[in-house]
Simulated scan of single mutants.
Amino acid sequence: MSFQQRPITFFPMTGEELRPNFKVIPAGTELWRVHKSKYRPHQFNPLLADIHFDGGRFEGTPLDPYHSLYVADSALTAVAESMLRSVAWNGTKRTIPYAAAHGRSLSVLRTTCELTVVSLIEEKDLAAVRRTADLLDDERSYAKARRWASEIRAQAPEAMGLVWQSRRNRPENSYVLFHDRFAGCHCGALEVVPERGFADLGSPEGIEEVNRLLDPLAAEVSKPLR
């Protein structure tokens, strides 16, 4: 990966100095990712979110145009974070539409150097960046969360991403990584672990694997309509 860092242009969310707490991901750590199959396993999402509306919680925007890559501590957490959003209980199990698995892959990445990320895991970590759990839990304010991510990035130029406790598989962690903070990692900071993961989660074998993973969370992906 070879990225050129770009300047951040945004309207500050606060005049206060943030004092973020950092967490170091050691070299050799394995992280799991669910991604569109058209992307390489370690390819950052090249799309930017809208400033006010569409887009993920911590994706870059035209005001702060970084590319993002979401990973998790385990296969289950990666699948749950990708597929369990806004899925309601329906009887004894949560049913996930087949479209959530179609065209997606499950991959394993390994860090080749230490990654320094801002921790949002504990309440004290959120307080350090002048936020509460709403930054992570509120489904209605993704645009505001993206602005706060830019504020954190601006005040913590060494931060290569963020880490927080998964809302869908506590207490494991989810991460977002910022592509423009990897310029100093020679030879690429993430390598693909071969023969791990699943190339086609929408295949019959892929659906079986996803449902095996999701069974402890009482959730399953529906079969495709014939």
Rank of each mutant, 00 (worst) to 15 (best):
N45I: 04
A156G: 07
A27V: 13
T132R: 08
T9C: 09
K93Y: 11
M160I: 15
P204M: 03
M13K: 14
R140S: 12
P216F: 02
C113L: 12
Y98A: 00
L31K: 10
Y98M: 01
H52E: 08
V221K: 03
R167D: 05
S105G: 15
P41Y: 04
D125N: 03
E16M: 15
H67E: 14
S82I: 06
L76W: 12
V24Y: 01
P204S: 05
P224K: 00
R131I: 12
K144D: 15
I207R: 04
L136M: 07
A78S: 08
R94H: 09
E195W: 10
T95A: 05
R33M: 09
D125T: 02
K223S: 08
D73M: 12
G15T: 15
R140G: 09
H42Q: 12
W148S: 06
R110T: 03
F10W: 14
D137G: 05
A156W: 05
V71G: 10
T132L: 10
Q4F: 08
D137P: 01
S166V: 12
C113T: 15
N211Q: 00
S203F: 01
W148A: 03
A75S: 10
V221E: 06
E122G: 10
I121A: 11
R226A: 05
R168I: 07
R170M: 11
P20M: 10
Q165E: 15
E195L: 08
Q5G: 08
S222A: 13
E30C: 08
P194L: 04
D54T: 13
P194Q: 01
L48W: 06
S74D: 08
W32E: 09
P26K: 08
E220P: 00
L177S: 05
N21Q: 14
L18R: 06
V176Y: 05
K223H: 09
N21H: 15
S166I: 10
G188N: 04
E123Q: 13
A154G: 13
L177K: 14
M160Q: 14
M1K: 10
S74N: 12
H179R: 14
Y70L: 04
M1R: 06
H179N: 15
T77I: 11
E205Q: 01
T14G: 07
T61A: 00
Q155Y: 06
G91C: 10
T116D: 05
H52K: 11
T29N: 11
L214T: 05
A154H: 14
V108D: 09
L76T: 15
W148P: 03
A218E: 12
R170H: 14
W32C: 13
P216K: 02
I207E: 00
F22K: 07
L177F: 11
A154M: 08
L213T: 04
I152D: 03
K36C: 15
M1E: 05
M1H: 08
L76A: 13
P157M: 01
V118H: 00
I152G: 03
